[in-house]
Simulated assay, not measured.
Amino acid sequence: MAEEGDVLTSLDNLNGANGHDTAPVAGLVTQYVKDLSVENPRAPESYQWQEQPQLDVQFNIGARKINDEFTEVELKITTAAKTSQGTAYLVELAYCGLVGMRNMNDDQRHAFSYAEAPRILFPFARRVIADAVRDAGYPPLLLDPIDFNGLYLQQLQQQRSQAEQLAGEPAGEA
């Protein structure tokens, strides 16, 4: 297990200095599977089903500040394959990265945590999902690439629109 001093040294190495650089720097210190659940509730009958399953894939991104320089970014992916006969499989993954950020304002930190870090983590989470589905006895599920930056910008625009709508509404009735 890495000590906090080791992690701080890793962050110093990201900016190529001994902590004296004032330029913004961010990077992935480590990544890991925090939680993985694979359910194959209808095995072995589900292996005989001829109907093509409908896939439902859900993503959620979370970030938890560890201290002033480190944030845990969590990419949650839930995928379910269902047919009219039932659920073939369900895979739930919480894939995390410990992100080091220094000399960044709050907007930069937010953007890195919710757009760039998930972009970096996704290919590794995608492999875990593919392997888990294969290990459950089905063909590997290869998730399509995701434009996390585009989704992030879209969500920011929606939040701004909602804030503008709320600002334009009357405060109450007289």
Rank of each mutant, 00 (worst) to 15 (best):
L142Y: 12
A125C: 06
N15K: 06
R126I: 02
E51I: 04
N13M: 15
Q85D: 10
D147Y: 07
Q165D: 12
E92N: 13
I66S: 06
A136P: 11
M104S: 04
S113K: 05
Q162L: 12
Q54H: 13
A26D: 05
S84G: 09
P118H: 06
A88P: 04
I61P: 08
G172D: 08
G100L: 05
P123S: 07
R102M: 07
G100K: 03
D106C: 04
D135L: 02
F122I: 12
L142V: 07
R42P: 00
D6I: 01
A2F: 03
T78W: 06
V133F: 01
D68K: 08
D68F: 03
H20N: 12
Q108A: 15
Q162F: 04
A130Y: 02
L55Q: 09
L142E: 14
G62Q: 14
D147A: 09
A23K: 15
Q155L: 10
Q31P: 07
Q31T: 04
I146G: 01
M104D: 07
A81E: 07
M104N: 09
F112N: 05
L93K: 00
L166A: 13
A174Q: 11
P41D: 07
A163R: 14
Y95C: 06
Y114S: 01
E72P: 05
E92M: 10
F59R: 05
D12Y: 13
D147F: 07
M104C: 15
L8P: 00
Q157G: 02
G100F: 03
G27M: 10
I66C: 02
Y138R: 02
L153M: 09
D106A: 14
E92I: 05
V38C: 04
E51H: 12
T79K: 01
V7I: 12
D135F: 02
R160H: 11
E116G: 00
P118K: 01
